[in-house]
Design a protein around this nucleic acid. Sequence first.
DNA 1: ACATTAGTGAAGCCTCCACTTCAGTATCAG
DNA 2: CTGATACTGAAGTGGAGGCTTCACTAATGT
Lengths: 106, 106
Amino acid sequence: MSDPSSELDRVFHALGDPTRRAIMERLTDGPLSVSRLAEPLNVTLTAVMQHLQILQECGLVYTEKTGRVRSCRLEPGGLAPLEKWIRDRRSPWEKRLDRLGELLGP
Amino acid sequence: MSDPSSELDRVFHALGDPTRRAIMERLTDGPLSVSRLAEPLNVTLTAVMQHLQILQECGLVYTEKTGRVRSCRLEPGGLAPLEKWIRDRRSPWEKRLDRLGELLGP
DNA sequence: ACATTAGTGAAGCCTCCACTTCAGTATCAG
DNA sequence: CTGATACTGAAGTGGAGGCTTCACTAATGT
């Protein structure tokens, strides 16, 4: 893996675009082909492809081509770095509560 | 409050910029004035102001001016919608595990 | 009072990036 | 074989947005 901070950069940048978030939301319910993915979106198939490439490069989406159709699905741990960043943004006392919860909970 | 989906849009867009994320990271350790905020960043004071306005408009940062200095701090619940979106991106079975955890844990 | 500090407002520049068009390549169906 | 489907690649366009400069106001310090 490369520089973790620039990886986070890419994730945030990727999710900054509404269309790409729409793709992620769409894939939440299960794998989809590129064409099906493009249907409800108001963009070209080519545009969807470009978005998919970006989402892939930062580990948010996994795609696999079988025959002439490419199947797209969410990468399981893709949002983890984002989640970690958010947790790190809590105030110190909140963090302390978190740690307490981790000790007591799971 | 306005349309919630466009609110989420603004949050994601705001965090899509590295400089704005740097501001958020800087404010994690406590309130800071605009000048102090700008010091380590390689941009003008004016640029920082513009970023702050954006961060404010989507409820991520709270600022208050006393005298000639404006104090900036993180808005406590600001990242909540973002967090919710991430949670909603889990697969159905993962969600079910989450609910189970919620019932057993806290 | 005067200089300095801290922040504002307006206007313009310029780069990046989302999107399109068009042309091309496999794959599948009849 | 023929046509349709599903994607891929290259190249170009337009607009949004991040940044700067310059001019200005208000608070503070000596």
